[in-house]
Design a binder for these strands. Structure first.
Lengths: 305, 305
DNA sequence: AACGATGTTGAGTTTGTCTCATGTTGAAGG
DNA sequence: CCTTCAACATGAGACAAACTCAACATCGTT
C-alpha cells in the first residue's frame, strides 16, 4: 500500500518548493511524481498537499506521512549502511558480552589491539550480567559472547579461546594450604565464596562438588574479586577461581592457590558467535587476536592451550 | 533498493517456519518468495537466511533487516491507521496547546463534553509555554492552538471563539478604585503585575500603555493568578486580566475590576488550526462545543460574543 | 526405493511505474 | 482582456518488476 518511494518523494517535496523541483532531486520527471501522488491520494482518500501555493503546503495527512518519513527513512539508511558494511567485510559491528567475571583482564588488550587494526568496526562491550547473552546473540543484538559452557544452539558456533585451570584460593595458614591437592570432601566444613550467579554456571559445583555429592558448610557470594580475596586471606572462606585471575594475589603470597583434584580442574573459554560470522574477515581476525593476546597476557600464568 | 514488501516478508518468515508457510500468510506463492529473496540476497551480496533448517535460521544480515522491520513496520501501521482515521472522519487526533494562562477554566468543560461525543478522537492538551506552538501546529505536531493574536501563517486559519474584556484589578481601597475607568496615565506611578511572557503578547502593553507611550513605575511578574490577586489585594500592585478570570475574585469583593479606557479594552480568543482540518467533522464539532461551553461557563461573567 | 515436503528455476503473464507528448490552470504583465 | 509562463494533470505507450504456473532438484522419512 504505502511504499518507501512515497516517503522519499514526500521528503524531497518538502525540501524542494514544487513538484518540478522535487522531481529533479529524485532524478524523475514531474509527470512521474504527479502520477505517483494522484494514485497515493486516491488510495488514502484525501489530498496530501496543496499544489497551488509556493512553496507547497502539506495537509494534515501529508504532515502525518512526513512525520513517518522522518522517523523511518533514517532507520532505513542505517540498516542499509550496516548491510553493505557486512558485505564489504572491512567494516561492521562487534558487540560483545562476557559471562565471566574475570575476563576483562585479557579481553581489554585484545580490544585495544583490534581497534587499531580495524578502525571501521564498531566495538562495544557490555559486561551484561543483567540479561541472557546467548539468546541476544542468536537474535542479533550481540555479535560475540565469551562463555565457558558452550550450550548447543542452532546457528551458534563456539570457538575455543584458551583452556585454564580452576583452582581453590585458601588462606596461607589454612589447614588445606599444605595439601598437594584438594578433594571434594575437604570442602565439607568450609565456607565457599562464589560470584553471584546460578550454581550450574560454576565449574566448582558442576564438575567438582556435585559429582562427589558434596555440599560445603556454607556458600556466600561476592561481586568483586578483590573482596573475595580479602575474605579468603582473612580465613573466612575459600573460593574457586581461574588460575590467571588468582595469579595476581597468589604470586604475592596474599593467598595460596591449590589444585582441585589430583589431575586438576580444567575449563575452556569459548567465543560464541553466529555461524555465518566465521566468514567475516574482521571476526576471524578478532578471534586470532583474542587467542594471541590471551596467550601473552596469561603467559607467565601458565595458561593451557 | 530495499522495499517494505521485503521487510514484511522477512517478518512473516520469522513467524512461520518455512517459505511455504510464510507465503501462505502473505497470500502469495512460495515461488514468489523464493524469487524475492533470491533477488534481494543478490542485491545485498549475501544470504539472509539458511533454508535447510526448520525453523529457518537467519544470518547476521537477515537479523539486521528483521531488526529494521521490527522498528519500522509498527510505525508504518500506526501512520496508516492515523490516515484512515483522518479519512473516515469519526476518529482522529486532537492535540492542543494553549497560549493563555487562564484558559483551562473554560477549556476543561469543553474537552469533557467533547470526549463523550467523540470517544475515538485522541485528545491531548499541552499547556506548553515551553515551546512555540504555532510552528508546531504548522508542522503537524499540534492540531489546535488557543491564542489571542492571530499571526498570519500559510495554511493556518483562525476561528474566533469569544471576545472578552481585559480589565484592571486594583485593591478595594486603591486610589483608582473609585474612578469610572482607567486611563494609561493612571498607571504611571503604579506597579504592574503580569504573567511572565514577552510584552508584545500582553494586551495591556500593546493596546493600552504603548499607544499612549506610558511606562509603569515598576513591572513585576507572577506565574499564578491567585498569587497576583493576593499582591493586588494587599495594595502592592495592579494587574490586567480577562474579566472572566477576574470574576471569581471581584465578585467576592476581594479586588475591584476596573475598565481600561472609556470604551473598554476588548480582545478575542482564537482557535488556530490547519486550514484543511476545518472539514473534519470532529474538528467542526469541537469548535462549536468550545464556543458553546465558553459561552455558558463565562455566562454570568458577561462574555462578549 | 518411493514418497512427501520444501525450495529453485525458467517461461510467461500481469501489474505497476516511468517517460513523452500534450492539455489544463492560475498568476503576472502588457 | 488577452498573452505568456510556470506549474501541474492526463493519456498513451514503453519498460521493468513481481507474480503465477509448471517442472525440477533436494532432503529427510517411511
Amino acid at each position: 500500500m504505502l511504499e518507501i518511494r512515497h516517503l522519499k518523494t514526500l521528503h524531497a517535496l518538502r525540501e524542494a518548493d514544487s513538484l518540478v523541483d522535487a522531481a529533479d532531486r529524485l532524478h524523475l520527471t514531474q509527470s512521474a511524481l504527479s502520477h505517483q501522488f494522484k494514485e497515493l491520494e486516491e488510495r488514502m482518500g484525501m489530498p496530501l498537499f496543496v499544489r497551488k501555493t509556493k512553496p507547497v503546503r502539506f495537509t494534515s495527512a501529508g504532515l502525518r506521512l512526513l512525520q513517518l518519513a522522518d522517523a523511518t527513512l533514517p532507520l532505513l539508511r542505517a540498516a542499509e549502511r550496516d548491510i553493505s558494511r557486512l558485505a564489504g567485510g572491512t567494516a561492521g559491528r562487534l558487540h560483545m558480552a562476557i559471562e565471566c567475571h574475570s575476563c576483562f583482564q585479557w579481553l581489554m588488550p585484545t580490544i585495544d589491539q583490534f581497534r587499531d587494526a580495524w578502525p571501521e568496526v564498531e566495538l562495544d562491550l557490555a559486561s551484561g550480567f543483567s540479561f541472557a547473552p546467548l539468546p541476544a546473540l542468536a537474535r542479533g543484538d550481540l555479535d560475540l559472547v565469551v562463555t565457558s559452557d558452550p550450550l548447543e544452539l542452532a546457528g551458534i558456533t563456539y570457538v575455543p579461546l584458551f583452556t585454564y585451570e580452576a583452582m581453590l584460593a585458601v588462606a596461607n595458614q589454612h589447614r588445606l594450604a599444605s595439601k598437594p591437592y584438594i578433594v571434594p570432601e575437604d570442602l565439607l566444613p568450609e565456607t565457599l565464596i562464589t560470584y553471584p550467579v546460578e550454581r550450574d554456571r560454576l565449574d566448582i559445583f558442576t564438575r567438582f562438588l556435585e559429582p562427589a555429592d558434596i555440599e560445603p558448610a556454607q556458600v556466600r557470594t561476592s561481586e568483586l574479586t578483590v573482596m573475595m580475596m580479602q575474605l579468603v586471606a582473612s580465613g573466612r572462606g575459600v573460593c574457586g577461581m581461574p588460575h590467571w585471575a588468582l595469579h595476581e594475589y597468589s604470586s604475592r603470597g596474599y593467598v595460596k592457590a591449590k589444585r582441585l583434584g589430583e589431575k586438576g580442574l580444567f575449563a575452556t573459554l569459548y567465543a560464541a558467535i553466529r555461524a555465518d560470522m566465521l566468514d567475516a574477515p574482521y571476526m576471524r581476525d578478532f578471534l586470532l587476536t583474542a587467542k594471541d593476546t590471551s596467550f601473552s597476557t596469561l603467559d607467565g600464568v601458565s595458561a593451557v592451550r
